[in-house]
């Protein structure tokens, strides 16, 4: 779904090329833009990253490779993939198919979870890891709600949990065209299929985050109501040597709400 741009300062968009890969039982659409060192971008379940300005900026220096998650925007979700962990093996196959070396990975929300599932299994092709408000682990006890329930809460409440300033969310459901609504419906169904139970996490993942040897940066929105910064600190503690930065006046998508500060952290880390 198109996301309205906030200002007029736009350089011409980098050209996006699309290629489909047949891997395991799935067809994976991979969008690539820009040139330079490879940077793998694992989008969030809300897909704000897909045509965000910061990606344009990254494309000036990097070859930004953005696979569409199975079930999203043309990629298929076969029965054999039931979890994000299942999906990580597909992505390891994709890294092989793309013959990537020394690729840095940026993962957003569920995409951050996916990045950890990949990096704990095989990091031979990977360089650095950026996790933006990732979900995927459970930190606290059985009675603690680590990850806020996006299905139980009313849509308006969920929006407030996700955004510090809801006006920064350009996506208005009732203004969607039929085609956009269908895309949104498919994306939400695929997310539910993979993340309903256990709810947005893999109970085993936290016990093997120690396997991540990559230089890792976690970026968190200080006002994220879905997974709070304390959850992020717990996440960071499990990944040896990782660093976490929190961005003020931002929720679950700091790259949408505070793109400039977000990019400062990214640039400094990838340098």
């Amino acid at each position: 779904m198109p996301v309205k741009k906030s200002s007029g300062r736009r350089s011409p968009k980098a050209r996006t090329t699309k290629k489909t890969y047949n891997l395991q039982e799935a067809k994976i659409v991979v969008e690539t833009k820009g040139s330079g060192k490879p940077l793998l971008l694992l989008h969030s379940e809300d897909r704000y990253e897909r045509d965000a300005d910061f990606v344009e900026e990254l494309a000036k220096k990097y070859r930004v490779i953005m696979p569409m998650m199975p079930g999203f925007n043309g990629s298929t979700l076969p029965d054999s993939i039931r979890t994000i962990e299942d999906m990580s093996y597909l992505y390891l196959d994709l890294l092989d198919a793309l013959k990537l070396q020394d690729v840095s990975v940026m993962g957003f929300s569920v995409g951050g979870w996916l990045a950890c599932e990949i990096a704990t299994k095989n990091d031979a092709r990977l360089k650095k890891l950026i996790l933006v408000d990732p979900v995927g682990i459970k930190n606290r006890g059985a009675y603690d709600r680590d990850i806020e329930d996006i299905y139980y809460n009313q849509f308006a409440v969920v929006k407030k949990l996700k955004f510090h300033d809801i006006k920064k969310d350009s996506r208005v459901l009732i203004e969607m065209s039929d085609a956009e609504a269908l895309d949104e419906a498919r994306a939400r169904e695929s997310t539910a299929r993979l993340c309903w139970d256990p709810y947005f996490h893999n109970p085993s993942l936290r016990y093997r985050l120690n396997r991540i040897k990559l230089k890792t940066l976690l970026i968190w929105g200080k006002n994220d109501g879905i997974v709070k910064p304390a959850y992020g600190r717990g996440y960071s503690k499990k990944i040896p040597g990782s660093k976490m930065v929190a961005i003020a006046k931002a929720g679950h998508f700091p790259h949408v709400e505070q793109p400039e500060e977000f990019m400062q952290h990214v640039r400094a880390f990838l340098r």
Binding site: I174, A181, L182, R188
Partner: peptide, 23 residues
Amino acid sequence: SEPQFRAPPGYVETNLYANFLSG
């Protein structure tokens, strides 16, 4: 009931769910 309880994603057919999202 509250509306979001009536149509969790994947419960109804995709096109109906799309119509639910767009109101």
